[in-house]
Design a protein around this nucleic acid. Structure first.
Lengths: 240, 240
DNA sequence: GACCCTCTGGAACGACGTTCCAGCTTGACA
DNA sequence: TGTCAAGCTGGAACGTCGTTCCAGAGGGTC
C-alpha cells in the first residue's frame, strides 16, 4: 500500500540486467570508478543492494558487462557504413571508434586492461580481434601472418587508446569543464615538466618536449595506425 | 621488554620505504593484488598498519612505487649490454625486458594501465619512452617523426605485454604449477573455445583458431615489434 | 636527568562488497 | 475466487578493507 501510493500509476519498470548495466555505465561516467558502489547504484535505481545481486553475480561481472556494452557499441561502426571503403580505412574507423569510446568513458581503458587480464580471450577481445582481422584478411596479407598482423593492430590500439584516454581524463580533471583551453594548459604542463627533467637521464624526452604542445591526440593516434599498417604491408605483401 | 625478548640480539632493521615496497612486490607476486592488504603487509613486516603510513601516503603510492621499481629494473637492460647492437636490437631488448617483467609479475600489466591512467606522463611512462626514443633517434628517423614513432612503439609494447601477461597468468592459474603442459592445455582450451564461436558472427577468429595452438608468446611479441619497426623504416626513411 | 623529535603498532572508524532473509508481487492451478 | 509456489525485492547485518588516531617507545641533544 505504501509502495502503491508512492508509485501510483505505472509500476516502476522492473529491474533487469540491462537496466543495471546501463545505470552502472552512467554512474561510471559521472562519478568515476570509485563512485560506482552497490549502494550508490541501488539508490540510483531506487532499490536496495540485495536486489541487484539477483541479476548480477558480483562487481566483477558488473564491470565486465559495462565494459562489453561500451565496446560493442564502439566496434559496431563497421558494418553499417558504406562498404566501398578500403580495408585500411575500415581499420581506421574501428580504431577511432575505440579511441573515441575511451575518451568518452575515461574508465574504459583500465577496465579493458582488467578484463583482458582476468578472462583474456573471452568476452571483449574477440569482438575487437574479429573486427580487425576481417580487414587484415581483406588486405593482401598471406594467411600465415593473419594472426601476427591482427594482434599487432589490436595491441597498438588498446595501448594507445588507454594512454590517450588517460591524457584527456587528466586534462579534463585539471580544469573541470573539458575545453581546448584546459587541454592546451595540460599540454603546456606536460611540456614544461619534460623540459625540467634531468638532462643526463632524459635527453630524448627533453628533445621532443616542445613537440607535444598543440599536438592532436586523434591525429597522433591515426599516425600510429598508419605506421602499423605500413609495417603490415611492407612486411607481408606478396613479393617480399 | 617483551619486544626485546622476541628479537633478542640485533634490533630488526628499521622500516623504510624501500623495505615496504620490496615486501609489497613480494606479496603481489605470491598472493596477487587482492592479497596485498595493509594488514597482510604489516604482518609480513612484523609491525602494524599505522607504521606503514609513516613512510607511504596510501595504497596508490604503494602500488605506484611497486610498479616503478619493477619497471625500472626491467628497462635497465639497455645500458650495460654491448653497445655495438643495432638500434633495432636494442628496442627488442627493452621490449623483451618489459615483456618478461609482465610475465614474472602478472599484476604489472594492470598496474601499468592504472598508473598511466592516474598520472599519465609522470612516473613510469617517461622511463620507457626515453629508452625507446633513444633508439628511434639512432635509426634514420627524421626528428619531426620521433614522437610518433616512439609513441607507436611504446603503445604496442604496453598493449602486447599486458595482453600476454594475461595469457600466461591464466595458463598458470589453470594448472597450479606453470609448465609447458599447462600452457598447451590452455592454448587448446582457447582454440577450442574459438572454434565453438558463432560462424556468422566470428568467421575470422574461427579461421585462425588453429593457428593459436603451439604458438610462442615471445616469438609472437617479437614478430609484432619487427612489424612496427618495419612500419617506422618504411614510412619515415629518407627518400620517402 | 629532562626534553623533543622520529618512528612505532594496536585500536578504532567509516565505507565497501557481499550475504541473508522476511516479505511482497505475480501467475498458474484448483 | 482462493491458494500456493516461484520470482523478485530491499533493508539489515557481517566481515574486511583503507585509513586515521594516539599513546608511547627509542635515541639523540642540552
Amino acid at each position: 500500500m505504501a509502495t502503491r501510493s508512492r508509485r501510483p500509476e505505472r509500476r516502476q519498470e522492473p529491474l533487469s540486467r540491462e537496466r543495471i548495466v546501463e545505470a552502472a555505465v552512467e554512474l561510471l561516467d559521472t562519478v568515476g570508478e570509485r563512485g560506482l558502489t552497490f549502494r550508490a547504484l541501488a539508490q540510483h535505481l531506487s532499490t536496495g543492494p540485495g536486489a541487484i545481486y539477483w541479476h548480477i553475480t558480483g562487481k566483477d561481472e558488473l564491470l565486465g558487462a559495462a565494459t562489453e556494452a561500451v565496446v560493442a557499441a564502439a566496434v559496431a561502426v563497421e558494418p553499417s557504413g558504406r562498404t566501398a571503403d578500403s580495408p585500411e580505412d575500415t581499420v581506421r574507423a574501428v580504431a577511432l571508434g575505440l579511441f573515441d569510446a575511451t575518451e568518452a568513458h575515461p574508465w574504459l581503458a583500465m577496465q579493458l586492461a582488467m578484463q583482458l587480464s582476468r578472462t583474456p580471450w573471452a568476452t571483449v577481445a574477440p569482438r575487437i580481434f574479429e573486427s580487425l582481422g576481417r580487414q587484415v584478411r581483406a588486405m593482401d596479407v598471406p594467411e600465415a601472418h593473419w594472426f601476427t598482423a591482427t594482434s599487432a593492430l589490436m595491441h597498438y590500439i588498446l595501448g594507445a587508446a588507454g594512454q590517450n584516454a588517460a591524457n584527456s581524463a587528466s586534462a579534463a580533471r585539471a580544469g573541470l569543464t573539458g575545453g581546448d583551453v584546459d587541454r592546451d594548459a595540460f599540454l603546456d604542463t606536460v611540456s614544461a615538466a619534460w623540459e625540467a627533467l634531468d638532462p643526463e637521464e632524459y635527453p630524448f624526452i627533453r628533445a621532443v618536449a616542445n613537440q607535444v604542445r598543440g599536438h592532436d591526440d586523434r591525429e597522433q593516434f591515426l599516425a600510429g595506425i598508419t605506421l602499423v599498417l605500413a609495417g603490415i604491408t611492407a612486411h607481408h605483401r606478396p613479393g617480399h
